[in-house]
């Protein structure tokens, strides 16, 4: 490490933002793509977990528990190293990230969806059925829309967590904000300036999301 004695290099700090912004595009793309994939898969898993068949329920629950109770960094490496060895398919680092994070996030979302649906008292479903609705109709017209507002705050929190967790893709060389920040640091030796710029980049993107999630929690979160 190069020793430096004098203070903060504002130029180096300022010029970090342009490359970091390119990384931000990757961070946002990762977040959005993973979320788009995870919502339908999460709904599917939630329905499997509410299934009438014990075996289906047990398998779905086990799958979800494993993804929820293991470190996402480990999941990333597992998909990176082990999946090719098991299946012979080698994915690009970007696809590795998509697969691992989708597994992770869809498991968390399925729990959110399941809990949201379960929180609507069964009499609401019975009331819908007694009006001659089919089970699917009572879910779409009555249970789903009510569960949605219970689900929204937790969904927003999962979104924010995903946004931050994507920083881990830098460990498998996907060029997101953190990867570019670490590269830049190695190239310029402006450690303090570059890393502070990188943290500010995340703050600028993450803070509004976190505040929005807080607001949703206050507005729609279940009290007591």
């Amino acid at each position: 490490m190069i020793a430096r004695t004098v203070g903060f290099e504002w130029d180096a700090f300022g010029s970090s933002f342009a490359p970091l912004l390119e990384g931000a595009v990757m961070t946002v793309v990762l977040t959005v793509v993973v979320m788009l994939l995870s919502v339908p898969i999460g709904v599917g898993l939630a329905l499997l977990r509410l299934s009438r068949h014990k075996v289906v329920r047990a398998i779905a629950t086990g799958w979800v528990e494993v993804w929820r109770a293991t470190p996402v960094l480990l999941q990333l490496f597992w998909v990176f190293y082990v999946l090719p060895a098991l299946t012979g398919i080698t994915l690009s680092p970007f696809l590795v990230a998509i697969v691992a994070f989708t597994g992770h996030v869809s498991a968390f979302l399925s729990e959110t969806f399941r809990a949201g649906i379960a929180s609507i008292r069964p009499q609401q479903r019975q009331a819908a059925l007694s009006l001659g609705m089919t089970p699917a109709q009572s879910f779409i017209v009555v249970v789903g829309p009510q569960a949605w507002w219970r689900i929204l705050p937790a969904f927003a929190n999962t979104w924010v967590s995903l946004f931050k967790d994507t920083a881990l893709v830098s460990t498998i060389a996907v060029a997101d904000i953190s990867y570019i920040g670490l590269q830049l640091r190695q190239e310029t030796f402006m450690t303090l300036e570059v890393l502070t710029a990188m943290a500010l980049m995340y703050l600028a993107l993450g803070y509004p999301q976190a505040k929005l999630a807080d607001w949703l929690e206050r507005r729609f979160g279940v009290k007591e």
Binding site: K164, A167, L182, T191, A199, Y202, Y207, A210, K211
Partner: peptide, 23 residues
């Protein structure tokens, strides 16, 4: 509190390890 909740842990760790000694 809000800053720490908005920034990835990885970035916090990297900053504390590499950058904070300079501060």
């Amino acid at each position: 509190v809000d800053i720490l909740r908005s920034i990835p842990l990885l970035v916090v760790l990297i900053w504390v390890f590499f950058a904070s000694p300079m501060v």
